Computed example of a mutant assay.
Amino acid sequence: MTRKPTATRLALSLLALSALAPALALAAQSTASETRVPPDPLVLVGVAPQALPGQPGGAVTGVVAVRGRFSSHVRLLDPTTGEARREVFLPPEVRLDVSPALSADGKWLAVALTPDPFTKVGRVGILSTYPTTGGGFQKVISAGGLTGTLSLEFSPDGTRLAAGNRSGYAQLWEWATGRRVTTVPSETGYEPARLEFSPDSRLFAPIFRAQTRTRIFDARSGELRATLRGVGYGLFTPDSRGLLASRGRLVLLPDGQEAPPPPYLAGTNGVIGFSADGTRVLVRRTGVDVQGREWLELREVATGRTLGALTRVWDGWPEALSPDGTTLIGGDGEGGIRLLPLAPR
């Protein structure tokens, strides 16, 4: 699974490193030992930071789930080594054009299903990622509002499931009981681009395309808690007390007031993700270098100190940070994925 970099790849890597300050160059040299997972082409299903260790007594490093773009085969891998943990074959009624959602503990996959053959209403199923004696779905939710589902997302505690719909709304479900908590209509008429939960699972923020304000809902009751004007995009902070908006802004909850940005946001154009313990963050650096490349940086949350950096690969593959905060999970430009060490613990 691990490939040695070619001479051309090494030459390009060294050229890129020479453009950085010495401290960044030393941090980024670890990318020479990247792990490659061959292409299908692959799609990122999700990263489960709370997944149990592969071996009894081992460290909890989480898992990353990938699958072919229209494949029924989901692979769960170690997010730093690429080692296979387990695999799931999706049943025939699963819609392969909708990406499954992976729970934070790595135990469940939520999948969109073909409409009920008798009632024709939409369905969502919950599958275990571990072999089960009876097989089949742990739970199937059927409702007219699930017809047209195009995205799914679990809350971090696994009790809530959000479903984005192409008709321009998002629904929140207590999936174990099949209870619909709330339906949030789009204010722009567009579908949800992202379905965000706060790390403590108390808040839910559907991010609709082209929106200019973000609404924050109570994930348990579905009640509206805050409306953040001028915030079209946001990612919750690790402490769930703020929202990281575009252009490196920090918006406090619930009053919506902007606060001085923390050091790790300086000179950034957005946050990709945090490590599971909240001590490391992967950010997009503002602007491009002289060769037109955009850079990603791994930073220390407490100080803003840069721990590692590397250029993006523009293949449409979303980047993610491994749960331990040491490795970038991204595309390789050829339909596969790469696991690039940024800074060891």
Score class of each variant (00 low, 15 high):
residue 104 A to V: 02
residue 257 Q to N: 14
residue 22 P to D: 11
residue 324 D to K: 06
residue 222 G to S: 07
residue 140 V to P: 04
residue 167 S to T: 08
residue 289 D to H: 06
residue 196 E to H: 03
residue 89 F to P: 00
residue 223 E to D: 13
residue 73 H to F: 13
residue 94 V to S: 02
residue 181 V to M: 08
residue 113 L to D: 06
residue 157 D to S: 12
residue 237 T to C: 03
residue 214 T to Y: 02
residue 129 T to E: 07
residue 238 P to V: 05
residue 173 W to C: 02
residue 216 I to W: 00
residue 324 D to S: 09
residue 217 F to C: 04
residue 204 F to W: 07
residue 185 P to I: 06
residue 337 I to S: 06
residue 223 E to W: 11
residue 131 P to G: 07
residue 162 A to D: 03
residue 28 A to Y: 00
residue 87 E to D: 13
residue 273 G to A: 06
residue 191 E to P: 00
residue 344 P to F: 10
residue 39 P to E: 12
residue 192 P to I: 10
residue 202 R to D: 10
residue 326 T to W: 04
residue 21 A to C: 08
residue 26 L to H: 11
residue 223 E to V: 08
residue 195 L to Q: 05
residue 139 K to E: 12
residue 186 S to N: 11
residue 332 D to W: 04
residue 18 S to G: 11
residue 142 S to P: 06
residue 73 H to E: 14
residue 34 E to D: 12
residue 169 Y to G: 09
residue 238 P to M: 05
residue 246 S to C: 01
residue 145 G to Q: 13
residue 254 P to V: 12
residue 51 A to E: 06
residue 95 R to I: 04
residue 163 A to L: 04
residue 343 A to Y: 06
residue 152 L to A: 10
residue 20 L to N: 03
residue 246 S to V: 12
residue 4 K to Q: 15
residue 169 Y to I: 10
residue 149 T to Q: 08
residue 277 D to R: 11
residue 312 R to Q: 14
residue 229 R to Q: 13
residue 99 S to M: 11
residue 310 L to E: 10
residue 271 V to W: 00
residue 69 R to Q: 14
